[in-house]
Design a protein around this nucleic acid. Sequence first.
DNA 1: AATGTCTATGCAACTCGTTGCATAGCGGGC
DNA 2: GCCCGCTATGCAACGAGTTGCATAGACATT
Lengths: 183, 183
Amino acid sequence: MALEHAILVSLLEQPGSGYELARRFDRSIGRFWTATHQQIYRVLRRMETDGWIAAQAVTQDGRPDKKVYSAAEAGRSALGAWLREPVEPETVRHELAVKIRAAAFEDPSALIPEVERHREGHAALLARYLTGEQRDFPDPSALDAQQQLQHVVLRGGIEYERMTLAWLDDVLATLHRLHRHAD
Amino acid sequence: MALEHAILVSLLEQPGSGYELARRFDRSIGRFWTATHQQIYRVLRRMETDGWIAAQAVTQDGRPDKKVYSAAEAGRSALGAWLREPVEPETVRHELAVKIRAAAFEDPSALIPEVERHREGHAALLARYLTGEQRDFPDPSALDAQQQLQHVVLRGGIEYERMTLAWLDDVLATLHRLHRHAD
DNA sequence: AATGTCTATGCAACTCGTTGCATAGCGGGC
DNA sequence: GCCCGCTATGCAACGAGTTGCATAGACATT
């Protein structure tokens, strides 16, 4: 399980409450590690019990109080130990690929709108990534280690989206070709 | 849940036992949808109860008997209904990306062997994909609909591996750069 | 002769992840 | 005045997925 490690990284980069973490997971981090607020709150409680993180209650005006967590020394060394372990093979869940192969047993062209919707989502995400890159890393020669590592992960996201867009175009061309020949 | 649909697709392409399905998931299908034999046996039983698939006992010499499943009409129509539903957003779990951002809080160069091992794995997989493409789709102009759809999914895998290799080289270059500047 | 691997299926226990709901005050729109 | 959405946290129940183990005969290796 790496959710606790993803949370640790996020807290090391910037302390925050469960709610704030949930929103970070919805935005940036969620692009390579998803989590709901339920998972996050549960894991935060366990990590606090284990002494990986420390909580500080913050009273607020006009909105509910919150508990701001930050990474403790034990958490930091746990992260170091995890870093030295080999990665487990990633479990892939590519639903669209299943659907494309399934389309052979139905009308393949019925999948076209679905693939197009998918394509739009990836195009929008790529645009957001590129905007974020311009904003956060305008001068790549003036970055510290942390920013350079964040940047290389973002570049991975950008290349992934570019590749996916090209592939979805390939898929669409294939579906259109099958449609024409079925007439 | 799409495991049942992935199994349906696999059974429509070729009937088989739970054990055979588990091995297909280890090889080809597992590249875009993973599953253990436990999951597969459990889902197969449920699908048989629901009438999505039909089982036929096959007695064998020299090895245990098996139950060969094939997709039933109800399963086929369930697959069609699922095809017309919109895809849910994919849940991404990219452990290496978490580790790369975590490396900012440790010695980043300690991650180099890990990334290199990862890179070798992807290079080997790309080689296997390309061999498989040569073997299964030697003449792309002479494919039926099912093969064309299988081929376009394989091309997605190939492009994914190529992109990943290029990105991992980018990651390695970044880690080496950080290592030099830390001296 | 003993050990290990492959085929083939399954139980039991567990952890991980999701969904629905609840609370509760603040502010905005109709 | 009412409903909706945002911040902020949490319970309870369920479903998905993993891990360890068991059975059991056939065959290969040491």
